[in-house]
């Protein structure tokens, strides 16, 4: 079996060359749809890019551009970021800002040092520390400014990142299996369309 044959799968009656699967998966993570573009699956690349990027950007905008940041401090364990980062390179600035904030945080007091200056005018920068629940800190101000939009923006970006995990899998191994109930329906639809065409 040649390497080309090993990476070729048959789905919906079509042969799909997955090329270098690992590279495709990496590209799919870095930019939604890029892995499929590399594999020549253009329609799916367009669907993934438009759907995931628009969802992520819409959520980011609705949340006042403060919903994506990296922080793992007491009172502000931003676990959402690990899911938002599923959308790839678009969330990298938050990681850089988070590292910078960690360097600028006093390890004894937990307070941000006075000489701290965020990069890029604070784009994706974490809130000034400490963040204490029930106190008027920077996170509370962001909530107050955007209201429900802050929560909604957080979930939109999280969902976009989660959806891209499915896309990464699809780039690496091809389409996921259809549940048995759905497969029966789709087979009957396919059979009907074949009979009609005959």
């Amino acid at each position: 079996m040649t390497p080309e044959e090993k990476n070729t799968i048959s789905v919906d009656g079509e042969l799909v060359d997955l090329r270098n699967r690992t590279l495709a998966a990496l590209l799919a993570w870095l930019l939604p749809g890029a892995g499929h573009f590399y594999q020549g699956r253009m329609t799916k690349a367009a669907i993934f890019f438009i759907c995931i990027m628009s969802t992520w950007i819409f959520g980011f905008a609705v949340g006042g551009s403060h919903v994506v940041y990296s922080s793992w401090e007491p009172g502000d364990k931003r676990w959402h970021y690990y899911l938002q980062a599923g959308a790839g390179v678009i969330s990298f600035p938050a990681y850089i800002q988070g590292r910078r904030m960690n360097d600028a945080t006093d390890s004894f007091t937990g307070y941000t040092k006075s000489n701290y200056e965020p990069l890029w005018n604070g784009f994706m920068a974490p809130p000034v520390r400490p963040v204490i629940e029930s106190e008027a800190d920077q996170v509370a101000a962001w909530y107050a400014q955007r209201g429900a939009g802050y929560e909604m923006g957080t979930w939109y970006t999280v969902i976009a990142g989660l959806l891209n995990i499915l896309v990464i899998y699809d780039a690496y191994g091809g389409p996921l299996s259809v549940p048995i109930s759905g497969r029966k329906k789709e087979e009957s639809v396919t059979e009907d369309s074949e009979q009609t065409s005959e």
Partner: peptide, 19 residues
């Protein structure tokens, strides 16, 4: 978004994806 990505990660044929 969710429906299209779900569909597209289960099929290659565009008609089946949309269905």
């Amino acid at each position: 978004t969710v429906a299209l990505v779900f569909g597209a990660t289960r099929h290659e044929n565009t008609t089946l994806v949309l269905n």
